[in-house]
Design a protein around this nucleic acid. Sequence first.
DNA 1: TATGAAATATTTCGTTC
DNA 2: GAACGAAATATTTCATA
Lengths: 152, 152
Amino acid sequence: MELDQIDIRILRQLQADADIATNRLADMVGLSPSACLRRVTKLRRDGVIARTVAIIDPALVGRPLTAVITLEFALHGPSHRQEFIEKVRKLSAVRQCFMVTGEVSCVLTLHMRDMDEYLALTDELFNSDPNVEWFRTYISVQTVKDDPGVAF
Amino acid sequence: MELDQIDIRILRQLQADADIATNRLADMVGLSPSACLRRVTKLRRDGVIARTVAIIDPALVGRPLTAVITLEFALHGPSHRQEFIEKVRKLSAVRQCFMVTGEVSCVLTLHMRDMDEYLALTDELFNSDPNVEWFRTYISVQTVKDDPGVAF
DNA sequence: TATGAAATATTTCGTTC
DNA sequence: GAACGAAATATTTCATA
């Protein structure tokens, strides 16, 4: 599944704004509407476009508190993390979770209602998990940039 | 701009999948298509739905390397960060950038092509910026969760 | 001011060239 | 790719509550 320059232009546009009408998109990339739509359909089918979603303003839906948390596991290896991973996947306040190399094991980003929710979440995720050795919290005071996905 | 339970249901659905037909969305939230569409239009106009975007698979567009970077500034205060912020905003490999409280000043997430791009980026962003005292890199080895925005 | 049904306009899809 | 009609979908209008 090779992407040519037209595919790239389509993806860049849809990543910025997926609401655009097919006719306008076709104009922008220099294709007929039907040809353009066929490309988009194929990009979806191939999984390059995983899905399209509405981007919601966190502050306007009552999640004004953004935090980054890093943590270290006591025991390493995937089997000891399974339960933690399940919990992370279920909690809607957790937006991202990456297992990483370096002096921490895991990095999370969260969007929360308030400090009460923060306390409840850290208690559930970290304090009550014997495999979480320690965690550090970084509270966001300014969102300089927050794009929904990869750019390329 | 108060959100009632129907608004919440609409937002949850569109955040998970904005491709859904208006009729189906209307069914799901218990509204007629026209009433439902009017709600969606209003949510857009009020900025609750900021925009809708296509989610692209990083690996399939040649950005398989995900990293989290934390850093400390030498001089604090917004004026010393302006240049850094401009650069961050321009670089498409930088997905997120938060200014934070705690033992680091700033947290970034990046999606990159390869280690060469990583080296070039860190050189441009950190090594050549006298106000960046130090930075630490965490390379992602597993993406446990990566949602495009807030959940609620 | 919010709703739903119906009318209208637009977009998408399958087929053919 | 382009062109067309058929089907699906989106948007507007309007009467009603």
